[in-house]
Design a protein around this nucleic acid. Structure first.
Lengths: 222, 222
DNA sequence: GGATCAGGTTGACATCGTCAACCTGACGGT
DNA sequence: ACCGTCAGGTTGACGATGTCAACCTGATCC
C-alpha cells in the first residue's frame, strides 16, 4: 500500500490525494474526530508527518476539505434560476438547503463551529444579489444586506437543526419543512419590513385582518 | 489543594464540585476542547479518574454541565409574559435568543453538535404552548407543531450564526437582528400559512398589493 | 477490634497531534 | 561518469489526553 514517491515538481499530487482520502473518511464516519492524521496518511499510503508537507496541521486539513464543498454549493445556487426574482429567491434558498443536507458534515464543520473564515460569503453574496433584485422589483423593501441575513438565518436554522438534532420528532417531512421555512422567510421579510414596530392591530382583530389581506394577494384572474 | 475525602453518604458532593469547576472552565475558555478531565480534576483537588466515579466519561460530563443551563432557559422563557398571545410569542422568542447569546458555549455544545438528547424539548414545549394560544386567538393558522418548529428554526439560525460566525460583517446590531428575525418568523408564519402554494400574485403586482395589505393591518384608531 | 465498603488513588496503556532529525533518489553541472 | 543539491519524503520521539484495572484508606457497624 506504500505510495511511490512523486517525481520532483509533482509534490502537489500528494496534496490532492490527501484531500481525496480525507473527504472519503469524513463522509464515511460523519465526524471530524474520526479524521485522524494517522488514518488519512495510512489510507494515502504515506507516513503521518507527510501531511504536514501540504497542510499546516489538522485544522487546516479539515478546513481545506470542507471548503471544497462550498464551491459546489455556490455553483448549484447559481444554477437555481427563475425569471421572477421572488421565485428565484425561493429557488436559491432551497438549493442552499438541499446542498447543506446532502453534505451535512462539511456544512457542520464550516458553519456550526466557531470560526473566522468566511466560508459562506460567496453563497451569501448570491443570496444578496437576488434580494437586491427583489427590492428593485418592489416585492421586498428595506436594506438588502439586512433582509438577506435574516433570511439566511432562517434557512441556516432549518438545516442546522435537521443536521444536529436527528432525534427530534420533526412534525413534517424534511422537504416540506425546508419549503415552508423558505416561504416563511420570504413572506415574513416582505411583511415585517412594511409594518411599524408598534401600532399593528391587536391579536383579536389581527386574525381576520390577515385573512382579508392575504386574500388580496392571491391571483384570482387566472 | 488536595480535597479532603468526603464522609460516607456524601459522595455526591464531589459530583457537584466537579460540575461547578467544569462550568467555570468552560466559561473561561469558551471551548469544550479545553475542558480536559485532568484540568477539571486538578481544579477540583482530586485525581483524574475520580471523575469516572460520577460521570461515565468526558462526553457525559460535558452534557451534564450544559444541561444545567437549559433549566434556566426554560425558566426565563416562562418569565417572559404578555397578555397578548402574539406578543408573548415574540417575547419568548427574544428570551430564548437572549439566553442563548448569554451562554454561547452551552448552547453550541447542546444544539450545534449532533446529538440525540432532547435538550431543547422543554423550551420547545413552551414555544409550542404559546403558538397554540396564537392559533386559538386566530392570529396563526395551521398545525401548531409545524408552525413552532419553523419559528424555532428561524430563531435558532439567528443565534447559532451569531455564535459560530463572529467574524461575519453583520449589517445590523445584534438586538435589532434578533428582533427582526423574530418579527419575520411571526408574520411570515402567519402569512405564509394563509397563502396558497401557487397562485400568489406575480412579483410586479405583488409589491403594491403587499403595501396595501399591510396598511390594513395597522391600527389607525388609536 | 476486626470486617466491610464507600470513596477515592496509583500506575499504566493506547492514541493523538506535532516536531526535529534523518534519509533517498532524480537531476543539473562539470 | 561522478558528485552535490534539493524536493519529497521517513523515523523516532515527545507530551497530552481519555480510559481502565488494581490498589489503598479511613469511617462505621457488629
Amino acid at each position: 500500500m506504500r505510495r511511490v514517491r512523486a517525481n520532483p515538481g509533482e509534490g502537489a499530487l500528494l496534496r490532492g490525494e490527501i484531500l481525496r482520502v480525507a473527504e472519503e473518511l469524513l463522509a464515511e464516519t460523519g465526524t471530524e474526530q474520526a479524521l485522524t492524521l494517522r488514518a488519512v496518511a495510512a489510507r494515502a499510503g504515506v507516513s503521518t508527518p507527510s501531511v504536514y508537507l501540504h497542510f499546516s496541521g489538522k485544522e487546516a486539513l479539515i478546513e481545506a476539505v470542507c471548503l471544497r464543498a462550498w464551491d459546489e454549493l455556490a455553483e448549484s445556487m447559481r444554477l437555481a434560476r427563475a425569471d421572477d426574482p421572488f421565485a428565484r429567491l425561493a429557488r436559491r434558498g432551497q438549493a442552499y438547503a438541499r446542498f447543506a443536507l446532502a453534505h451535512p458534515t462539511q456544512y457542520r464543520v464550516l458553519l456550526m463551529r466557531p470560526a473566522d473564515h468566511r466560508a459562506a460569503q460567496a453563497c451569501f453574496d448570491l443570496m444578496l444579489e437576488t434580494v437586491r433584485d427583489c427590492v428593485e422589483a418592489g416585492v421586498l423593501t428595506g436594506e438588502p444586506e439586512k433582509l438577506a441575513t435574516r433570511m439566511w438565518a432562517a434557512i441556516h436554522g432549518c438545516v442546522s437543526l435537521l443536521i444536529a438534532q436527528p432525534g427530534f420528532p420533526w412534525p413534517e417531512e424534511i422537504d416540506d419543512f425546508v419549503t415552508n421555512v423558505v416561504r416563511m422567510a420570504g413572506f415574513g421579510t416582505a411583511v415585517a419590513e412594511r409594518l411599524p414596530r408598534r401600532g399593528v392591530l391587536p391579536t383579536p382583530r389581527l386574525g381576520p385582518a390577515l385573512d382579508a389581506a392575504c386574500r388580496t394577494l392571491t391571483d384570482h384572474d387566472r
